[in-house]
Simulated assay, not measured.
Amino acid sequence: MKRPSNGIATDAAHSTKNKLTRYRGIDLSTGRQIFLEDLGNQTVNIGEFLGVVAAVKYIIENDFHPRVIYTDSITAITWFNNKRTASGKRNTELEKAGVFLKVFSAEVDKIDVLHWKNDLWGETPADFGCK
């Protein structure tokens, strides 16, 4: 299977030392960073999910094609498919993301969120290199 070269790759990183969670998205065809957000002290799963939701918003707002997002987070894919999180952490951004996915479900359902296969393709281009 060939490494994807079109779509948006997302990833998140969490530093316990710096108490900082962030996520970003990279346009796979250009390598350009299209968004980067700092969330403060959250969890990597929250960052991964919000990164996917940010990519969904980017696709809808910019009529981006192909309508494909890659993430290496099975949790983020599951939360996206369920249109809600399983996080017990109270977080306004998480709540807004769930509402957005439900309200815009007609458009959201036209977007594929696929698993980035690190074992075949290496780290996602959105990786922060913090491992």
Rank of each mutant, 00 (worst) to 15 (best):
K110M: 08
G88P: 00
G25H: 00
V113F: 10
D127R: 05
T92S: 09
C130G: 08
T43W: 10
K89G: 03
I34V: 13
V103L: 11
H115R: 11
P125M: 07
A86E: 14
I69N: 05
N82R: 01
W79S: 01
N81K: 12
D11Y: 12
R90K: 15
K131M: 08
N91M: 03
D119R: 09
K2Q: 10
P4H: 05
R22N: 07
T78F: 00
T85I: 10
Y23H: 15
G25L: 00
I60S: 10
L39C: 14
E61F: 00
T78A: 13
W79E: 07
I74D: 14
L101D: 11
A55L: 02
Y70G: 03
Q33F: 13
W116E: 02
T85V: 13
I111Y: 11
R32I: 15
G98V: 07
W116N: 04
L50K: 09
N118R: 12
P4E: 04
A9K: 03
F64V: 09
T78M: 04
E123V: 11
Q42K: 15
T85Q: 07
T21H: 14
V53D: 01
T85Y: 08
N118H: 02
V108C: 13
H14S: 04
E95H: 05
G25F: 05
P66I: 10
E37K: 08
L120F: 10
R84S: 12
R67K: 14
F35P: 02
K117V: 04
M1V: 05
H65V: 06
G25E: 01
P125R: 04
T124F: 01
L39H: 12
G31N: 09
E37F: 03
L20Y: 06
K2M: 11
H115W: 03
I69Q: 02
L28W: 02
K19W: 05
D109T: 06
V56W: 00
E123N: 12
R32H: 15
G129L: 11
V103Y: 09
D127G: 04
S5V: 14
D109P: 07
E61W: 06
L50W: 13
F49L: 15
G129T: 02
T16Q: 10
